[in-house]
Design a protein around this nucleic acid. Structure first.
Lengths: 219, 219
DNA sequence: TAGATTGTTAATCGATTAACAATC
DNA sequence: TAGATTGTTAATCGATTAACAATC
């Protein structure tokens, strides 16, 4: 019975993180022509029990029918709107190494509304090259271009030692959300949100589990 | 006062996830020649208060000195051993697209003990190419080679529709830990651990936060 | 000794799960 | 109506934080 935003605090973080997975499960059902999906089925896709799914979805609104399940189409499009997947999100990406190039070319992003509209690199040998239809621009232009185009997301795929510097240029360009793939923590003002995608830290976790021969799903 | 493994259950998952970040913070201090690091400093690197750090580290052992802080060198090498970063971990990677290639060439992994020792792809045009010193092999050889070399980790960077099939070949090859970059959940036996690196799901979270203009650190 | 900081027990907070009523 | 499944309140479980003693 909850609406989007504002009530943010009412949706627990773990529940929020499960939403995209529910969404994908619903999309799959729709593709397969299944009109209803039960909470248990949704739960299996994330590894939580059905009651957790029902609890999670109770924060949103009522697309469940007792005895039947959830209406796949309605719930999927509600989640789409709730998560803002239908909104276009414009991003710049800095650091066109192997990982940067892979993200710039990643086909899955466009369907979630992400438009990477400019690439930057400080390596002059790369500047001018074209990746995924976009020319690589020199770093000097990052802040101005971001500000002019009201870019919402900055993606950082540079080595750790220069990541902070890049973040500062993004912030100077008015960017309020940074997706950081560099293995380091950024220092940013309060109104800027940083999402760290720390592959090396994940690897360290794998390492721990191998060492301990611990078993079961992780995440 | 805790040891590794066995007592697993005693270390809360969130604490465990912070360990690699503490480790990196300590490494940085060592590089800079700082012999001691306080819990508050460690906390700042993860975004948790010092008391949380002390609690986390209390699960391990006593490298803290009241009034002084933690002995950077000792704690770092303890964490190294605890997380198993010093052990070599051999991996195969399947799906040499842009993301697969980026991971195969990622320089940060080797320092955490990860050795990607074979690449596979079902695209015959790619088979035989050399990436990062390794020839790309055909899928048919995945299970046998994994078994023969006692490979520990399988990295999946194929499109979602074929990920399950790849996982099964890995499992047939005796692999017990899968790092899955495909945007889907894998069905695996109980003794196989799957770590999902779901970039599209992360993007959906960013999307939500943009939509809601929510602010602060995420993770 | 005074100041700083760790380590730990108890209190709080928040998420998950159990129980059960409501509804298709 | 009987069977299945949702939705919600209360109980449980686990992680974080507060308070404070211990130690350099």
């Amino acid at each position: 019975m909850n609406q989007k935003c504002n009530k943010q605090v009412l949706i627990p973080r773990p529940a929020l993180e499960r939403m995209p997975v529910y969404y994908r499960c619903l999309m799959k059902a729709i593709d397969e022509g299944t009109p209803f999906v039960s909470s248990d089925e949704l739960g299996r896709s994330v590894g939580v029990p059905g009651v957790q799914v029902r609890k999670d979805l109770s924060y949103l609104s009522g697309y469940g029918r007792p005895g039947v399940g959830y209406v796949a189409r309605s719930l999927a499009s509600y989640l789409e709107e709730f998560l803002g997947l239908i909104n276009d999100k414009e991003a710049v990406l800095v650091g066109v190494g192997n990982l940067g190039r892979a993200l710039a070319l990643y086909p899955g992003f466009a369907r979630y509304g992400l438009q990477i509209i400019a690439l930057f690199d400080n390596d002059l040998a790369k500047v001018g090259q074209i990746i995924g239809g976009h020319q690589i621009l020199p770093m000097e232009r990052l802040a101005n271009l971001s500000r002019r185009l009201h870019i919402q997301i900055g993606i950082i795929t540079v080595p750790a030692p220069v990541a902070q510097e890049v973040a500062e240029a993004m912030i100077a360009g008015g960017i309020k959300m940074i997706w950081n793939f560099a293995p380091c923590r950024l220092v940013v003002p309060e109104d800027v949100l940083v999402k760290n995608e720390d592959l090396a830290a994940q690897l360290a976790m794998l390492s721990y589990h191998i060492t301990c021969r611990k078993v079961g799903y992780v995440r």
